[in-house]
Amino acid sequence: MLNPLDIIKKKRAEAINRIIGKGYFSTIRVYVGMASCEIAAGSKEVMAVFEKAIKQGLNDVYLSQKGCSGRCNLEPTVEVVEENKIPVKYGLVNKDRAKTIIDKHIKKGQVIEEWTIQ
């Protein structure tokens, strides 16, 4: 019989495989804050913008919801993460900002400095 440590090792490996299967290794990963404070600030709308863009053909992007990192006054927050680049953290994202983030940052690689959390 397997010992708990072996079981958990296996489970972890399986979980990581499933996450990779969902496209974790895409060039860009986007995280949208989805705790009730973020939602109150409008993060569902923001999520919808990214979901729509992906449906309409934006590819090589892994989109995920995440909890709240505790920056109440800058919510909703969105992170754009690329391997070997400093993860970019955007604050006060709304529908329009989300669209701009897709057009400028995700598609053209231009970070929109004014909206980043420093």
Partner: peptide, 18 residues
Amino acid sequence: LGACGLAPAVSINGTIYG
């Protein structure tokens, strides 16, 4: 309501307005 960052806040049938 747990939306202190958006104070003052009200909740109407569960939807929060801040």
